[in-house]
Design a protein around this nucleic acid. Sequence first.
DNA 1: ACGCTGATGAAG
DNA 2: TTCATCAGCGTT
Length: 208
Amino acid sequence: MTLDDLLKNRQPLPREFYRRPTLEVARELLGTYLVRRHPRGTAAGMIVETEAYIGQDDPACHAARGYTPRTAVMFGPPGTAYIYFIYGMYYCLNAVTEPEGFPAAVLIRAVEPLIGTALMAERRGGVNHQNLTNGPGKLCQAFGLNKEQNGLDLCRSDLMIYPGEIIAEQNICRGPRVGIRNGQEKPWRFWIANSRFVSNHRKLPGRS
DNA sequence: ACGCTGATGAAG
DNA sequence: TTCATCAGCGTT
């Protein structure tokens, strides 16, 4: 399987795709292809898990407390990559959504590795195929993403998302977001049923 | 269950 | 300037 076979001459998802309600974008990103072109090789995978973070009324959204240097890109144009550093060690990749000025994004939580898996494994320290990209920190490591890619245009850059598989509604699961303290009641996490590459998640510390 | 790790932003 | 917090991961 080559990248050309995968993409079938399709164009990247256009900016209008992202300039919509975030829950719709999070749902419809399932099955699409994340592609990173890099001198060392191309990496690509199918998105199998996402989460929505929506505006200043969402307590789990980084932009809940307004415009700061970190959250600036969330206020910018839709279709922009928002990549942030977390827990002192990892990066997470988001796609900015909604019209410019409204801070929201979709967190890409997991992909199914398809192209460039040897390079992914090298970047990940030789872990099993199963564990290459089944988590937001893991997939950034596998794709070689860090703060230098923050702000890239997902519609026209070396990091883009392409139309892919159409996932039937019956094969989409929905539930609470992972790893947050506030906003747990909102079922804003989406994933593909039966995918072996959805992230492992655990309960929050400090509760029984 | 716990330690690693450092940016972030709020408080003072 | 200090401090608690954190959209995660690997090991125990």
